[in-house]
């Protein structure tokens, strides 16, 4: 069968110790039996490792941070599209999703397909709205309190026992065991990520995760559960293993059915000693460990691209249990010219 040629634009090429999903996403697509993919890498920083990896991207373009305004980012994408004729765009950072969701129609009119959650789906799973989300969809979530000022710590102490998790609305989480640590975490997080800072009840147990893909009609196209076996000091998975956990699968399917989730997602759950599951976070995009799902038999990147292009995708029900991923670091030797080109010309 002749493969369909497509041009794919992907962000998240930061394969650092806090990796983005771009490189594993591309790797999955390159293994597709249906697509012959030409990859356009979208980067924010000139040292994102994906820029320098051989045979990964045909072109690299630096794009402006979403914080500098949606219009700047979208205009840059349109400029790249005029040169490269993008078929599918897959944004991989939470912070850029808003800009792309807002401009989904505008991009589609020009032939750039995306497959993103709706605004409602994106907003109702935000960390500071998690208690309402849990109540609405019948899922256990840790109790939480949205902090807008240090004065609310007394309220926090009335509500929870220590330790508590203190989290930023987009990123960062600290375990705090006393008032001083809550204050410190509050200051660090609010300075970086703004308000509210979320104080969450600490649920003791094992962290387990699911990577999943919803078709927007309530169907789960793919889902693979995983347990982290080794984490970095930021809590990022550096090794993991697929699980046979029907409860996690049921929870995922139920959530996607109820929300009609559209696009990739990662569920972060805590499994307690008594076998209860608490949802602690939903990431509205594919996680950096997505290649484990590909290795276990579910090519989620390929399925997502097919959905973006309006192609039929049959739900994948099986995966290999006990498949592991082990990450590693690797020093690439690169020439200065490449670094100079991305730094000066903003493209390679």
């Amino acid at each position: 069968m002749k493969k369909q040629e497509i041009t794919l634009a992907v962000s998240g090429l930061n394969n650092t110790d806090n990796p983005g999903p771009g490189v594993p996403f591309i790797r999955g697509l390159k293994e597709s039996e249906e697509f012959d993919v030409r990859v356009i890498g979208l980067v924010y920083e000139n040292l994102e490792p994906g820029i320098y990896m051989e045979d990964l991207c045909s072109r690299i373009f630096q794009v402006p941070y979403p914080s500098s305004g949606s219009d700047d980012l979208i205009e840059r994408i349109e400029d790249i599209h005029r040169q490269e004729n993008i078929d599918v765009l897959v944004p991989n950072f939470d912070a850029e999703l808003y800009s792309f969701m807002k401009n989904e129609e505008r991009l589609l009119k020009q032939g750039i397909h995306t497959f993103l959650p709706t605004f409602q789906q994106f907003q109702e799973r935000e960390k500071h709205r998690l208690p309402e989300f849990g109540k609405k969809y019948g899922i256990k979530v840790p109790a939480s309190l949205n902090l807008g000022s240090l004065g609310q710590i007394t309220e926090l102490e009335d509500k929870f026992d220590y330790p508590v998790m203190v989290k930023g609305q987009f990123y960062d989480a600290y375990l705090a065991t006393n008032k001083e640590q809550v204050k410190q975490a509050f200051m660090n997080i609010s300075a970086k990520w703004g308000f509210p800072v979320i104080a969450q009840e600490f649920v003791s147990g094992t962290e387990v995760n699911v990577v999943a893909l919803g078709d927007g009609q309530g169907n789960t196209v793919a889902a693979v559960p995983m347990r982290k076996q080794y984490t970095t000091d930021k809590g990022k998975a550096w090794g993991g293993i697929t699980l046979a956990d029907e409860k996690m699968m049921h929870l995922t399917r139920s959530l996607i059915k109820q929300t009609h989730w559209r696009g990739g997602m990662e569920l972060e759950l805590i499994k307690t000693q008594t076998g209860e599951y608490y949802l602690i976070e939903i990431n509205p995009r594919i996680p950096a460990w997505v290649y484990l799902a590909v290795g276990a038999g579910q090519n989620i990147p390929e399925a997502l691209v097919k959905l973006a292009l309006g192609m039929e995708v049959k739900p994948m029900h099986t995966y290999k249990i006990g498949k592991m991923f082990v990450r590693y670091s690797y020093d690439m030797i690169v020439d200065l010219e490449k670094f100079a080109a991305i730094s000066m010309n903003k493209e390679i």
Partner: peptide
Amino acid sequence: KEIKISDNGFVFNSNTGD
């Protein structure tokens, strides 16, 4: 049923990952 026992003594619980 989720327990896999290898001949070399390695025991894997596919439900928990232990």
